[in-house]
């Protein structure tokens, strides 16, 4: 197997999907000759032409709705938001139209649209270009929300999203675009709705997504030296959420920590905590459930503050150590 970056893996998924199905097209801001703000579409415009790799005006509401309308009319659109923060401008079409159309129409239409959502902090782009808004969308029945952490999953999940009959939002953490990993060749699907145990351990379950999976794995390696074995569950899919894998892991380790970059309060950690508390795993818990999430603030500009606004490896190590040693 060869190594690809996360961005290259997404690019390959787009290439394969467009090659295989002429209904598939991509639209977005500066995705043509510019190649996309993060280089994901790259040279695709030269291969597939401007009709299938469409530069759009800066009109998030209109283009999001156009993607939804095209999906209902038999095409397979992929809309790239340049930054997922800009989806605020398109909320109406995503939440009121795409998510509800199938249901409102009695199941008579499919809405096979994909929204690509570059997200996350760490680039110094401050409050309006750095958010992690996956929990917003995961609150809406009718949408699927996925968040891969590895290049291999990025490719397999984007392909799964494109072939899915329902609207899917794929959150791509911007700091992951450059990470490298083994990526299988050709077409394959990584199923939506299945978590992945990225590391096995006996002492504590960490449920994380996207970049937090990498931070948790780093923390796990540090804690291993101290004799603490951390199990890391890579969520991969926020809606639907893989309840079974989470519950099974917590029953094994008897401790749960939810680590996520989105704002802590009412974030995905709240949902994971609640679903464990409501399940048979509750009786297995040997410690209170721990949540480490984003600060109750917008993402700041100062690099010192930006780091302070989201969980970092050192903080994760300390919190997990305390959790396992019964200090919280």
């Amino acid at each position: 197997m060869r190594e690809l970056s996360f961005a290259q893996a997404l690019h390959e998924a787009l290439d394969i999907a467009m090659e295989a199905d002429e209904r598939v097209f991509i639209m977005g801001e500066d995705i043509g000759v510019y190649g996309g703000a993060f280089g994901v579409t790259g040279d695709l415009v030269h291969k597939f032409g401007e009709d299938r790799v469409m530069d759009t005006p800066i009109a998030e509401l209109g283009t999001a709705g156009a993607a939804v309308g095209a999906a209902v009319a038999g095409s397979r659109p992929i809309l790239e938001f340049q930054f997922s923060d800009f989806s605020g401008l398109a909320m109406e079409q995503i939440v009121n139209q795409a998510a509800k159309m199938r249901y409102m129409l009695g199941g008579k239409v499919n809405v096979p649209v994909v929204f690509r959502m570059p997200c996350g902090s760490g680039t110094g782009a401050a409050a309006q270009h750095s958010q992690s808004l996956e929990a917003w969308f995961a609150h809406v029945p009718g949408l699927k929300v996925i968040e891969p952490s590895t290049p291999a999953d990025a490719k397999g999940m984007l392909l799964a999203a494109i072939e899915d009959p329902d609207p899917v939002l794929i959150f791509e953490h911007k700091l992951l675009y450059k990470i490298k990993g083994d990526v299988p060749e050709g077409h394959y699907l990584t199923p939506i709705g299945k978590a992945h145990v990225a590391r096995e351990g006996r002492d504590v379950t960490v449920v994380a997504a996207a970049i937090m999976v990498h931070k948790a794995l780093e923390a796990a390696e540090i804690l291993k030296a101290e004799g603490i074995e951390v199990e890391v569950v890579d969520l991969r899919s926020i809606r639907p959420i893989d309840t079974g894998t989470i519950i099974a892991s917590v029953k094994k380790t008897t401790r749960l920590a939810c680590i996520y970059e989105g704002v802590k309060t009412l974030g995905i950690g709240a949902e994971i905590s609640a679903l464990v508390a409501e399940s048979e795993a509750f009786d297995y818990l040997d410690a209170p459930i721990l949540r480490l999430g984003g600060a109750e603030s917008p993402i700041p500009y100062s690099p010192i503050l930006e780091k302070a606004a989201v969980p970092q490896v050192e903080g994760i190590v300390e919190a997990l150590r305390n959790l396992v040693k019964g200090r919280i």
């Binding site: 509401l61 209109g62 283009t63 999001a64 709705g65 156009a66 993607a67 939804v68 309308g69 095209a70 999906a71 209902v72 009319a73 095409s75 659109p77 079409q93 139209q97």
Partner: peptide, 8 residues
Amino acid sequence: PLATGAAL
């Protein structure tokens, strides 16, 4: 936007 997309 939906009609615009259907036309697209």
